[in-house]
Amino acid sequence: MKRNDWILLILLLCLSGLGIVFLGQRKKEEGTVVRISVAGKLYGEYSLQENRELLVETAQGFNKIRIEANEVSVFAADCPDRYCAEHAAISKTTEQIVCLPHRMVIEIIREEQAKNRQEASEEQVDGISE
């Protein structure tokens, strides 16, 4: 490796190290609501305290999501990479599970950020209800 290569490598390592440390400082909070979005649109918001299983059907395929013991995880999916299913369960506001092939994001938010809570009895398919 030439001198310039080393300079480039060290510069990038410092930059990424700084970024990782800086982003690690973000405040981790316990959230109470699970928000699921597909392709940038809100799919549904669910209480983190109520145990349940959800089937999220996207244009590209499905993800089966489990909310249990104040944690949410994906336990089955038909995406090619399965990164979402391998991801550990999340419970904090800075955490998210992303399924890139299905364009789906699961994140934890605080109670007051929730816009459109789904109660445990409701089903997602019937769209907007009073």
């Binding site: 490598l9 390592l13 990424s16 970024g19 800086f22 979005s37 392709a39 940038g40 992303v98």
Partner: peptide
């Protein structure tokens, strides 16, 4: 662009690190 979630950028430092090391 596809997922439309700008919070994905928080992942950039990790990708920067891995890209530089595997690239080398």
């Amino acid at each position: 662009v596809l997922v439309w979630d700008e919070k994905l950028f928080f992942y950039f430092p990790v990708l920067l690190l891995s890209g530089a090391l595997t690239g080398a």
